[in-house]
Simulated scan of single mutants.
Amino acid sequence: MKKDQPLIRRRALLAGAAVLGAAGAAGTAGVLTTADGARPVRGTAAVAGPQARTSLTTSAFRLQPMTGDAPAWRTPARTLVRHAPILRMSGRGRSMVLSFDDGPHPDYTPGILRTLREYDVRAMFFVCGEMAVDNKDLLREMADDGHIVGNHTWTHPLLTRLSRSRIRSEMERTCEVIEDAYGEAPLWFRAPYGAWNRAVFQFGAELGMEPLAWTLDSLDWRTPGTHKIVHRVEDGAAPGVVVLSHDAGGNRSQSVRALRDYLPYLLDSGYHITVPRRQFT
């Protein structure tokens, strides 16, 4: 398969999707403006580390409102340095985003991709470089199906405890693997454990990536049982929600089975499962 073929197919798939673009200037210290001109929403501060993360609720990270469709082949607007991850997502109608972290894994990611394909749904995959480098075929499959692949570092470390050079290396190496296998460089970054600091925001912006967080943690990483994962997602569903799940980092068979249950429920409930789109110039 030629390297540019996945990208061409991906553009064609995304052209008809109801997608959204990141809005608002970076560096606003968490003060975010809604897409429809409503009053600004003050976000939470950036997470300093594990202690700060455990004190947050699962809805602490919300996505910044995103607006505007644009051709995928146009140049993205210059990425500005933020002081907090994008905190709130505002879709068109009852829109939601599904995201999967830590993969791709040959045992679990294919099952998730099959379910998404069955229902013609696009999702986001935040991949770790050390997993992606040995599973490039799965990244190509994601490109073929129109999913968005984001950067989740190389080894999934706690970035706030690393030197600046280590942080940059973790992010750069993963960008290179994604671009090679997926067909284009990632436009989104998610910090492992939700731990952000100034260096992470700075390097992410320099690499052309926006910092993306989540709204609803499915808690599938605790392997609580398929039923509990399904109940948590269905109970937390609402317009603008971004669901955090995992396709690697442990036994994710419950996550695979749970998706088969809650995805048709969300669709039957009138939710449009979509993916964000960056603003373009």
Rank of each mutant, 00 (worst) to 15 (best):
E170V: 04
E170F: 03
T174L: 08
V177H: 04
E172C: 07
S169W: 13
I148C: 07
E172K: 11
R161M: 14
T155D: 11
H156F: 08
D144H: 07
E179H: 10
P157A: 11
E170G: 08
H147T: 04
H152E: 03
L159M: 15
L159Y: 11
V177L: 02
I167Q: 13
R164D: 12
I167V: 14
I178S: 02
T160Y: 11
P157K: 11
M171S: 00
T160P: 15
R164V: 08
R164P: 09
A143L: 02
S163I: 12
I167N: 06
I148D: 03
T174A: 09
S163L: 09
G150D: 02
E170T: 06
E176R: 09
L158R: 15
N151E: 05
R173S: 06
R168D: 05
T174M: 05
R166K: 15
T155Y: 14
R173F: 03
T160C: 15
G146C: 03
C175E: 11
D144M: 12
C175M: 05
H147D: 04
H147Y: 09
T160R: 10
I167C: 14
W154A: 05
V149W: 02
L159A: 08
I148K: 05
G146Q: 07
I178R: 01
S163V: 11
S169C: 13
V149L: 00
S163P: 03
C175D: 10
E176G: 05
V177D: 06
R161F: 07
L162F: 13
P157L: 15
V149K: 03
E179K: 09
R164S: 08
D144W: 11
G150S: 00
R166H: 15
R168E: 03
R173A: 05
H156A: 04
T153R: 07
M171L: 09
I148W: 02
V149E: 02
T174H: 00
N151M: 06
C175T: 13
A143D: 04
M171G: 04
N151Q: 14
D145Y: 10
H152S: 07
D144N: 14
T174S: 02
E170N: 10
I167M: 12
H147L: 06
S169V: 05
P157F: 13
P157H: 13
H156W: 10
H147I: 06
I148T: 00
V177Y: 02
E179Y: 04
T153M: 04
W154F: 12
G150Y: 00
S165H: 10
H156D: 07
